[in-house]
Design a binder for these strands. Structure first.
Lengths: 128, 128
DNA sequence: GCTTGACCTTCCTATAGCTGGAACCCTTAT
DNA sequence: ATAAGGGTTCCAGCTATAGGAAGGTCAAGC
């Protein structure tokens, strides 16, 4: 299977697949002409990565998850720890964004948004 | 005023202030010895930037906001448009993160997280 | 056999917004 | 004279790709 087909099957751009090979997340054999050859196992792995990335796991997290996934002697606690830490990060991010959203939405509501220069948004940025 | 004091007053790292000068967000005069000299107006401007960045506005947004702030003939509608667009972006980000959070929190809850290899988190990543 | 178009390859550059560090200059106090 | 604590420039690195150039390859159609 060539890279384009893997891209289609996994939903990952070919560029990204090459990148993942580059940083050692996946391996790929080569044909005589230099083309990468992928087997179903590779597709499986890349699909796994696509899912993990889709849930926002960092590349390094993915590396860890992948290793655990392939380790039949893994402890599910290790997987859970990674996911839990990631969940905490996401919740932190959300909290930060919620705060911004609250402030911004107040400001946007307070600004009449016409041709006059008077503007509560700028006032707020100016005053802190 | 030297850069360190400006940093202290605005809460921005000196590095960041230099960077902002570099990309033309602010200007700074120079003393004979090559040191940057800041006036109160510079501090004011940098404080404004710190606020805007704190609300998540991009550097380019900040450039626009700064220009409007300094334009006595501005239309508040222009400010509002920038803020509104930014608000929309933030809400989109929040929505994406909320989705991740929901999934992750379900998975973390479903995983017993012990020494056994069986793991709903990995199952989910594997299955899509 | 030749051309065309769709693949494939590598390598270099760019993104956002800084941060860290090296190598070096200036000022002030001891 | 020296040491501490400023300041300067410049270069590299971070995340996770995306874009594009330059070139090799393959299958189809004429």
């Amino acid at each position: 299977m060539n890279i384009k087909e893997v891209a289609t099957r996994t939903g990952l751009p070919a560029k990204t697949i090459r990148y993942y090979e580059d940083i050692g997340l996946v391996t790929a054999d080569r044909a005589e002409n230099g083309y990468r050859i992928f087997e179903r196992t590779h597709v499986h792995k890349l699909a796994f990565l696509a899912q993990a990335r889709g849930l926002g796991f960092s590349i390094e997290d993915c590396r860890g998850l992948l290793a655990l996934w392939e380790d039949r002697d893994r402890a599910s606690g290790d997987v859970r720890a990674i996911a839990k830490a990631h969940l905490a990060e996401i919740e932190e991010k959300i909290a930060g964004l919620e705060e911004m959203r609250a402030t911004l939405s107040d400001l946007v509501a307070a600004c009449h948004g016409d041709d006059r220069p008077d503007c509560p948004i700028l006032n707020r940025l100016e005053a802190g």
